[in-house]
C-alpha cells in the first residue's frame, strides 16, 4: 500500500479526519505542510495555534506538531504570547473567517497594527460552518444562510484589505482552486518577519454548496472562474494575489528598540 507523502506530518490517531467530503480543509492542510517543507521549516520548531471552527481543526489535532486549540477568536493573542516569549519558534495561526475576522476581529486588527511576528492563515468558507452555516463577516451580500434565509442583507468585509491597511507586512488572498499560488504565497510569508496574513477562499459543500445545490467540484470551478487578479476584480468577483508586501521591522524587533529613529 502506498502512503501519502505528507502522512509523516500527520497524527495517525486523528485520522480519518472529521472533515466533510469535498471540504477545502484538506487542500489547505496539504498546502501548509508542503509550504513548510519548501521553506525549510522544522515541524518541531513550529507551533500552531487555533481557535474554534472547522478550519481550526486543520492543525489541531491533525498536524504532528505542537498545537494549542483555545477559545473561539482567541488564537491570535495566544499565538502572540508564545512568540513574545519564544521568538525562535515559528508561530502559525490557522482559523476560519468567523474565528479570525468575526469574534477575533479586534485581535486581528491589533496584531496587524503591531506587525506582530505571526503568520495567520484564514480559511474563508463564507459562513459559520461548524454550527450549521450561519451568516458571517465574509458572507457575500444576498447569499442565503441558515440565519439569513431570505438572503444576506449585509455586505462582506475584505479582510485582506483591512489587514493590509492596519499595518501588516504581508497580505494575500488565494483560493483552494489556486494551490500552487497559495503554496508560493505561504513559502514567501514564512520567510518574512512581522505580521503575515494569507486568506484562502475555500468551499463548504455541506453548508454553502448544499444550499446552492453545488457539487464540490463545481464549487472549485466556480472559485477559479470567479477569481480575478487584485485590482482587476469586479464587485462580485474574488480578488486574488498580494495586497501588500512590506519590510517593516516586526514587533519583536520593535520591542527591543531596533526600529526606533
Amino acid at each position: 500500500m502506498s502512503v501519502h507523502p505528507l502522512h509523516v506530518f500527520l497524527r495517525s490517531e486523528a485520522l480519518p479526519t472529521a472533515f466533510c467530503p469535498g471540504c477545502g480543509n484538506g487542500l489547505v492542510a496539504g498546502a501548509i505542510l508542503r509550504a513548510l517543507v519548501q521553506a525549510g521549516m522544522e515541524l518541531r520548531k513550529t507551533v500552531f495555534v487555533a481557535g474554534i471552527g472547522c478550519a481550526a481543526w486543520i492543525p489541531s489535532p491533525h498536524f504532528l506538531a505542537d498545537s494549542l486549540h483555545v477559545a473561539h477568536g482567541r488564537a491570535v493573542p495566544t499565538a502572540l504570547g508564545i512568540k513574545l516569549r519564544r521568538p525562535e519558534l515559528q508561530v502559525i495561526v490557522v482559523g476560519g473567517d468567523g474565528d479570525i475576522a468575526g469574534i477575533g476581529g479586534n485581535h486581528l486588527l491589533h496584531a496587524a497594527r503591531r506587525n506582530a511576528d505571526l503568520l495567520v492563515i484564514m480559511v474563508n468558507n463564507l459562513v459559520y460552518a461548524m454550527t450549521g452555516g450561519q451568516v458571517g463577516p465574509t458572507t457575500p451580500h444576498g447569499l442565503p444562510t441558515s440565519t439569513t434565509p431570505y438572503g444576506n442583507p449585509e455586505h462582506p468585509m475584505d479582510v485582506v484589505q483591512v489587514v493590509a491597511a492596519a499595518g501588516a507586512n504581508y497580505a494575500a488572498r488565494w483560493t483552494t482552486a489556486h494551490l500552487p499560488q497559495l503554496e508560493k504565497a505561504l513559502v514567501k510569508a514564512l520567510s518574512m518577519e512581522g505580521f503575515r496574513f494569507v486568506e484562502v477562499v475555500s468551499p463548504c459543500p455541506a453548508r454553502v454548496g448544499g444550499r446552492l445545490s453545488m457539487a464540490p467540484v463545481e464549487a472549485l470551478k466556480w472559485l477559479r472562474a470567479q477569481s480575478k487578479p487584485v485590482g482587476q476584480a469586479g464587485p462580485d468577483e474574488i480578488p486574488v494575489g498580494e495586497y501588500i508586501v512590506r519590510d517593516r521591522p516586526g514587533f519583536l524587533r520593535a520591542l527591543r528598540g531596533e526600529s526606533r529613529g
Partner: peptide, 8 residues
Amino acid sequence: FLLIGASW
C-alpha cells in the same frame, strides 16, 4: 490569552 500563550 496572551498570558495563556506566554505560560505555555
